[in-house]
Design a protein around this nucleic acid. Structure first.
Lengths: 216, 216
DNA sequence: CGACGATCTAGAACAAGTTTCAGAGTTGAT
DNA sequence: ATCAACTCTGAAACTTGTTCTAGATCGTCG
């Protein structure tokens, strides 16, 4: 066989918005069908119910094609999470949270997000499990999810130009959010406890950003 | 077949210290061999290298027996984590951290634990991935790991009688520790950033427990 | 010692994620 | 319209976690 016979072109998945590969309409449609099938299956049985053969059949795509778009089940679920988070972010933007302090606004936002996920616990479970199970080969995609989470929190703080300290606090809040979510999903904590912990961690943001008068 | 023909007796794994099943010496030895084999394999290739057939062979136990002791790979890795955490806790107890404030002591302890895990990143990766991937069927074992983590942090605070608020702060710190650990292990954050975030979250403990004079 | 029930072994079998491949279908450039 | 390159399909194969089975061993009680 010729040495460079199968120099693979950029995979269709490469960061959706990137200028990498334009993706024809049919490809875009396939991608969307796959993501929808994934979310649908996860909504029922959770992580285990997202079986690649099922996803392929359900989205009318061959198994090999599915793997071309998403190189693993984890990639697929993380991409689904990104997708859902984008919806969520858009929704949240429309009705920004009220609250005196940044802490209140952030806690309010996160609890709202939390309730949104509660409506579909199995889907949430599948996505979050995939997210934390992901290894280095998925870090680019995971990174995008975290960036989006951070953006949501940052939006809620309503801070124009966050300091490194504040960014650290935002990261910690994000960590806590994901962690409490997992804990709740595995039935090891009640919603009340999650609420308390979220409020606790959100105080951090006020620690470095006093309500509205002066700063360090 | 007789209705109660195979009423399984308590599995050998049931909470080690429990009075459930005494476990003969040979059984205790098997259990230990398995945990050691698991840690050894994880130390090399990480999560993927812990293959149940390999663990069985390496610990000179039949595959079926391995599954009798640990009903899944996840159970096995979580049990390994519990084991390692117990070692760590014992070590930490011997040299309690110095520091003016509780925050300093907790941050110091966690960073020490962090460095301990750094020495064996692949093992840490395998254990932590298993921990967060665990579903409800493992929650009892996962709970034990979290309790141990909480105990380590609580020890460092040196608080005699923590308030609910302080307990919440401790939980949040634990969440952050696990989360930053994962983030570091997947190469999405530097050690420096982890250090900063740990210090950030540890301030929470001082928020509810002022240095050493009076309280709310 | 001998019997009985539980445990352990060896190995086959099954399930789901992943890979591979030959051939059919699309696309884009000429 | 046609050719070459790329993509998609369908199906089989491979890997590794998990389950199952038949028989050997172990430990205890008589």
């Amino acid at each position: 066989m010729p040495a460079d016979a199968h120099r693979t072109k950029a995979a269709p998945d490469a960061g959706r918005a990137g200028p990498a590969s334009p993706l024809t309409q049919r490809q875009e449609a396939r991608r969307r069908r796959i993501l929808e099938a994934c979310a649908r299956l996860a909504s029922r049985g959770g992580f285990d119910a997202v079986q690649m053969r099922e996803v392929a059949e359900s989205s009318q795509v061959a198994l090999g094609t599915l793997y071309r778009y998403f190189p693993s089940k984890i990639h697929l679920l993380v991409a689904t999470m990104r997708d859902q988070l984008e919806h969520l972010h858009a929704t949240l933007r429309k009705k920004p949270p009220a609250g005196e302090t940044a802490a209140e606004r952030v806690a309010g936002t996160l609890m709202r997000a939390f309730r949104a996920l509660q409506r579909d616990p199995l889907l949430a479970d599948a996505m979050v499990r995939a997210l934390t199970f992901a290894d280095r080969s998925v870090s680019a995609e995971v990174e995008q999810v975290f960036r989006r989470t951070t953006a949501i929190i940052l939006d809620a703080t309503d801070l124009a130009d966050p300091t490194p300290e504040q960014l650290s606090a935002v990261r910690v809040i994000g960590h806590t959010w994901h962690s409490t979510l997992i804990t709740w999903l595995s039935g090891r904590a009640s919603i009340e406890q999650v609420g308390v912990d979220i409020e606790t961690v959100c105080r951090l943001i006020d620690l470095t950003a006093p309500p509205r008068h002066g700063n360090t």
